[in-house]
Write a protein that binds this DNA or RNA. Sequence first.
DNA 1: GCCTATCATTCCGCTTCCGAAATGATGGCC
DNA 2: GGCCATCATTTCGGAAGCGGAATGATAGGC
Lengths: 128, 128
Amino acid sequence: MAAPGHASKAVFVPVEMRPSQALRLWHDVSLGLVRDEDRDLTARQVTILLTVYLEPPPHTVRGLAAKLGVTKPAITRALDTLGAVKLLDRRRDDDDRRNVIILRTVEGALYVEKLGDLIVARAKDLPR
Amino acid sequence: MAAPGHASKAVFVPVEMRPSQALRLWHDVSLGLVRDEDRDLTARQVTILLTVYLEPPPHTVRGLAAKLGVTKPAITRALDTLGAVKLLDRRRDDDDRRNVIILRTVEGALYVEKLGDLIVARAKDLPR
DNA sequence: GCCTATCATTCCGCTTCCGAAATGATGGCC
DNA sequence: GGCCATCATTTCGGAAGCGGAATGATAGGC
């Protein structure tokens, strides 16, 4: 059986799914997030979080605002929230002190890792 | 099970992905949602919406509250919002008039379908 | 040194969401 | 019919998000 789960060999699998599977996956993961967290992140917050953890640094408020298509205050507020729960950190850029560099944290990395595992697990359980 | 995708002979479509792909997918879809909608749905709202469209009726406030692990007022409020944008509707249950049955709408079905297509498209574009 | 452009943040009024408690309507049992 | 259980909703005070405008800090051209 070619169930490659943790298999040591790299599994190059094209990720294909039917719309019904996609929706079921989105539902199952969203439900997991809603259920196990008191306070859940907004779509913006999760997008910012994943951007910072998936794309190469440096990340700035301005860059994120442009990417998400929202205003800079919206980014600042989201960073306030994400910073308060330690999922992200930020620091002045020493090269250009007008900039603020958004930084990853250990807690944030763990959260993102957990989310990735959750999605993978739910994807695995999808009906074919 | 005629999987109506493009893949003619893809009967077995195991949805497997690596955590990095899963996170990239979640990011890409979230970004799409953040970018193209002024007003975006909360995790609760999207979970309710998908539950109603994916799982067999009837759906009640109480049932949804239990499933999501939140209070009934939270469900009522989410239904107010989703109803205002026509993604869901609700009606008194004539058999037991204490109950409220949550109903699908044409607009909601279109929205859900669009979401499914978005996820599938983003999944297809994932790096392998 | 000034002036202006460019950062991020704070302020403003407004809307939305939250949980808990109170309310209103209905059903079921005796 | 009376009483209690069970629905969903409304109310309440508080927290958080929003866009737009104003503010403060820094950089760079001159």
